[in-house]
Design a binder for these strands. Structure first.
Ligand SMILES: [Mn+2]
Ligand SMILES: [Mn+2]
Ligand SMILES: [Zn+2]
Ligand SMILES: [Zn+2]
Lengths: 141, 141
DNA sequence: TTGCACATGAGAATTATTCTCATGTAGGAT
DNA sequence: ATCCTACATGAGAATAATTCTCATGTGCAA
């Protein structure tokens, strides 16, 4: 139950929070902007203030329920933090997002941080390219 | 000469462009925000419109003279594209930025993109952590 | 059941960046 | 050297994303 998740992180169980969580849970695209969440909730009759969406997402992030990504160009996207850590590759044509995890890269990051005298706490890795969709392949320039 | 660089990429040689390039060249911190560039130029008597700074940086980026980075939290920073590609590690306490290059990571990225059916065109990797400065080490939380 | 700390909605405010437009100028052609 | 014109600039308005303010509502511990 999503109510549990909220209680576990010390947040009151409210309708807006539950709606946002369950939208993130069920939406077809798991990486969503605050604006999209706001709009989709509105369309399905659940009108919630945009400021509330931003507030809730920030709280979810602080609580570790959600992660935030800033892909080049586009606006900030959020996703439910279920399952293990992963990074992303984004199609520069259609915007499609795929996820991946690479043990070697993760390991190298730790080594590099240590070498430079840093205590690693986080990282952001995003690859950009053209995906294998026919429409994306036939672009000029 | 910086005039050469501008001509080579098909941009007219103008005072604002030269000033911005030479500031990027000589500044103590090589990763600078548009705002900082604007302010530092102003302080040294070279008043240039902020819009011009943004425009020039965008053109330099398009021409490959400059790269743009979006570190978490802070605003966009620019740096002169001299020397080979590298990624960054940022101290979450003091904001210090160090650079690194890791052949293994670069190589893995290519493999991963290929596996996912993408033609890799770019990537952004930034590590975050606490640097070895005494002041940064003694923070609580 | 009540009290109150916390949450919400609406809109204003803020911040970073881009756009508009009137004016200036680099640099190729003459 | 002078001219012409496409491109560049500055100032401020405009935009877009996000955050803040504040009056009002509500979860939930006592
Ligand atoms: Mn993801
Ligand atoms: Mn750098
Ligand atoms: Zn694509
Ligand atoms: Zn530090």
């Amino acid at each position: 139950m999503e109510s549990e998740e909220l209680r576990n992180v010390g947040l009151k169980v409210t309708t807006p929070r539950l709606k946002i969580l369950s939208l993130l849970e069920n939406a077809s695209e798991k990486h969503m902007t605050a604006e999209t969440i706001y709009r989709q909730l509105g369309e399905s009759g659940e009108v919630i203030g945009l400021a509330t969406v931003y507030r809730a997402l920030a709280q979810f992030e602080a609580a570790g329920l959600v992660t935030r990504h800033q892909f080049d160009g586009g606006q900030t996207v959020f996703e439910l933090e279920r399952g293990p850590h992963h990074d992303h590759i984004v199609c520069v044509r259609c915007g499609r997002v795929e996820e991946f995890y690479d043990k070697v890269i993760e390991e190298r990051q730790r080594v590099i941080a240590a070498q430079l005298g840093f205590t690693l706490s986080d990282h952001a890795l995003t690859l950009y390219g053209e995906c294998n969709d026919p429409a994306c392949r036939e672009s000029k320039a």
